[in-house]
């Protein structure tokens, strides 16, 4: 990668009591790149996102933004620095419509004389459509409560909302875990559009198939350690799976077989996988 990373973890360690969630992890995401972070349950994926988003602080090690050491004491600090996260629960208000959710907390006011306190619904709606158009997100209407939208559409709304304040890095925590096939494809397309806009995207996922489809580089975490980083174009699905399960990577003696995901199981048995 030629450009410098926009956001990086350097030798980050995080423990919760006796549990070592992360040990000496190095990760870097570049502008216009999708970095996938994969791993089995308990590999430390969520901890990585939380540290990048300012929800947790690292015990040792540092965060770097454009090569400078930074700290994110709060999620607000991370957002102010241009790093924004969409967590699994999406944090949408189901009773509000799409426009209301996208602009929640950043409502636009009318600029007219005398009416400065009133919201400018027309402008907000226009900008919402504009954003939807740029990212090719299809919605039936921007004036329906988001509770009536499909899971994929809700995910898209949450991502659009995260784009407020022109972030440079977007963290997506398991964006497709609850979605069907078609909706997953839609969300992955959206992820590609984010990359095309020059954003750094960190995609945390269980699903090897998703990751393989959309990521530029794939970082594999195993038992809190950064096992390896693959170039997605040159890595086979089986290599990836092996790295996640630890089958080919030197490490602790292989324990009982681990479930990765339904897709992965299906694929590995179909191709006569390692297990």
């Amino acid at each position: 990668m030629t450009p410098a990373p926009v956001l990086a973890l350097r030798k980050v360690t995080k423990t919760f009591g006796a549990v070592r969630a992360l040990v000496d992890v190095d990760l870097a995401v570049h502008p216009g790149e999708v970095l996938a972070v994969v791993g089995d349950n308990g590999a430390g994926k969520s901890t990585v996102v939380k540290i990048l988003a300012g929800v947790l602080g690292p015990d040792t090690g540092t965060l770097e933004l454009d090569g400078n050491v930074v700290t994110f004491p709060t999620p607000g600090a991370a957002r102010a620095a241009g790093v924004t996260a969409v967590f699994q629960d999406l944090a949408l208000c189901d009773n509000l419509d799409v426009v209301e959710n996208i602009f929640l907390g950043h409502e636009l006011r009318e600029r007219g004389r005398r009416s400065g306190a009133l919201l400018d619904e027309v402008e907000m709606e226009r900008r919402a459509w504009e954003l939807l158009g740029e990212l090719a997100v299809r919605l039936p209407s921007v004036r329906v409560p988001v509770g009536t939208l499909s899971g994929g559409q809700r995910q898209a709304v949450a991502i659009l909302r995260a784009l407020h304040g022109e972030p440079r890095v977007v963290l997506l925590d398991e964006p497709t875990s609850a979605l069907g096939v078609a909706q997953t494809a839609e969300v992955l397309t959206l992820v590609e559009r984010l990359r095309d806009r020059g954003l750094g995207v960190v995609l945390v996922s269980h699903s090897m198939a998703d990751v393989h489809a959309v990521a530029d580089r794939i970082a594999v975490l195993r038992l809190g350690r950064h096992a390896t980083t693959f170039d997605a174009r040159t890595t086979s699905y089986e290599d990836l799976l092996a790295a996640v399960t630890g089958a080919r990577v030197p490490g602790p003696t292989a324990g009982p077989p681990r479930r990765v995901s339904h897709e992965a199981d299906a694929r590995s048995s179909a191709t006569g996988g390692e297990r």
Partner: peptide, 18 residues
């Protein structure tokens, strides 16, 4: 038509999200 009203409804929808 005000932010206050929007926030009132947002809190009713989900305090945590608000």
């Amino acid at each position: 038509r005000t932010s206050w009203g929007r926030h009132v409804r947002a809190i009713g929808g989900s305090v945590e999200s608000a």
